[in-house]
Design a protein around this nucleic acid. Structure first.
Length: 368
RNA sequence: GGGGGGUUUCCCGAGUGGUCAAAGGGGUCAGACUGUAAAUCUGAUGGCAAUGCCUUCGAAGGUUCGAAUCCUUCACUCCCCA
């Protein structure tokens, strides 16, 4: 039901070209998943989302469990039918919310206790419950519940969270009931090489169908994140997909791919798009800037997206006038940009020229 | 014709003797955003040779150590009664 096939290894880096098959279709990897936290990629209709080239998307256990509730999603046909996306869906476990909403919760060995950000009532999320919710939602890939901590942090705190993440991963695996949903484990360990390696090895023993690297890009310098990938990825089984959670900027994706990462997700193309930033091969541009007022060029020459059928001046106008088409168009453009970036990476890997591709892109981004 | 209001920095709008280059909004300008409590948030926004100086609160004049704030006249404007 799930199959991960390595198609080609880049001759000069650890980049890999692969295909991951799920009950809702195959995903060409390396791949980027747009984020649709609340069963919608903000601002986009499903056909617009599909047109960006995205094959797989991410949604969220915590948010959907709170609203509308997994039973409601199940009653409406499961997550795919609920939101109208027929391709593969990965759901995050809510582990990130333990981190981002940390002031609202208490963590014990048994579970994480949240105070709902919506109405304040207490919500308990245990590894078993995270799995049960995700199975009710019906996503193709469910993430294990992990414990994310902010960085930098003391070794004691990081080690404690890492060890709990390992124990919780085992409980998630044991709680799994549905064969049509793959469970992925998440490596934690902060910026500590030993902890990362130890975590990866323990999780590898549990034989998950996929592995994620989590707890990164939470405030540490990019170089630290790359250093963690350097030590962590080699510890992960080469015949399973490797997913770098929550990353990132275009350069982070290429750095991750070069180190053997197959899958990414990030809010950046959509959030920054809603906030008037467009990604281009010449670096990001802020469409609200007055210099674009009468710029008749498209965001990116040669980009096939709907936004690039208009001028930069028009898109700036939409943002200045607070028209909702502005955020929609830049979300479309940015997601298209990310998908084209990844498609280019896949082609480059197949041709054993990923490093050249990466250098080329970096030169462009540094140009302005 | 009679009576009563109003005029503030790009806009709206506080401010009634010093702590006022002047609250707060808006606008504008710039920045941030990495498993989304984010179509959000932050900063700047009279000028300058700038830990200070100059110009500004309808105009002109006056009172005062000191005026956006008090007085006089004028201009414009709004409301009510004729």
């Amino acid at each position: 039901m799930f199959d991960f096939q390595l198609l080609h290894l880049d001759a000069h880096s650890s980049a890999r070209r692969s295909v991951f098959s799920t009950p809702h279709g195959a995903v060409q990897m390396p791949a980027f998943m747009p984020v649709g936290t609340q069963a919608t990629v903000k601002g986009l209709e499903i056909d617009q989302l599909r047109a960006t080239g995205a094959e797989m998307i991410l949604s969220n256990t915590y948010h959907l469990a709170l609203r509308p509730g997994e039973e409601t999603v199940a009653a409406l046909g499961g997550l795919h039918q609920f939101m109208g996306w027929t391709g593969p869906i990965l759901t995050d476990s809510g582990g990130f919310q333990v981190f981002s909403l940390a002031h609202l919760i208490k963590i014990t060995e048994e579970e994480a206790v949240f105070r709902s950000h919506i109405d304040g009532h207490l919500v308990a999320l245990s590894p078993e419950r995270a799995v049960a919710i995700q199975e009710r939602l019906g996503s193709d890939v469910a993430m294990a519940l992990d414990h994310v901590v902010g960085l930098p942090n003391t070794r004691e705190v990081v080690a404690d969270a890492m060890e709990r993440s390992v124990r919780w991963a085992r409980r998630c695996r044991d709680a799994a009931r549905r064969a049509d949903q793959a469970k992925f484990a998440i490596v934690q360990g902060g910026l500590d090489t030993d902890l990362r390696v130890a975590c990866a090895r323990q999780l590898r023993e549990m034989d998950f169908p996929g592995y994620a690297v989590g707890g990164l890009s939470v405030g540490e310098p990019p170089a630290e994140m790359y250093r963690m990938l350097d030590v962590t990825v080699p510890e992960l089984p080469s015949d399973r997909p490797r997913y770098l959670m929550g990353v990132g900027r275009p350069e982070d994706l290429l750095e991750g791919i070069a180190r053997g990462i197959d899958l990414f997700d990030c809010v950046m193309p959509t959030r920054n798009g809603r906030n008037a930033m467009a990604f281009t091969d010449r670096g990001p541009i802020r469409l609200r800037n007055v210099k674009f007022e009468r710029d008749e060029r498209p965001l990116e020459e040669g980009c096939p997206c709907a936004a690039c059928r208009r001028s930069r001046g028009y898109i700036r106008h939409l943002f200045m006038a607070h028209e909702m088409l502005g955020p929609t168009l830049l979300s479309i453009h940015n997601l298209t940009y990310y998908q084209r970036l990844l498609a280019g990476a896949r082609a480059a890997i197949e041709a054993d020229r990923f490093e050249e591709y990466r250098q080329e892109k970096f030169r462009g981004w540094a140009a302005e």
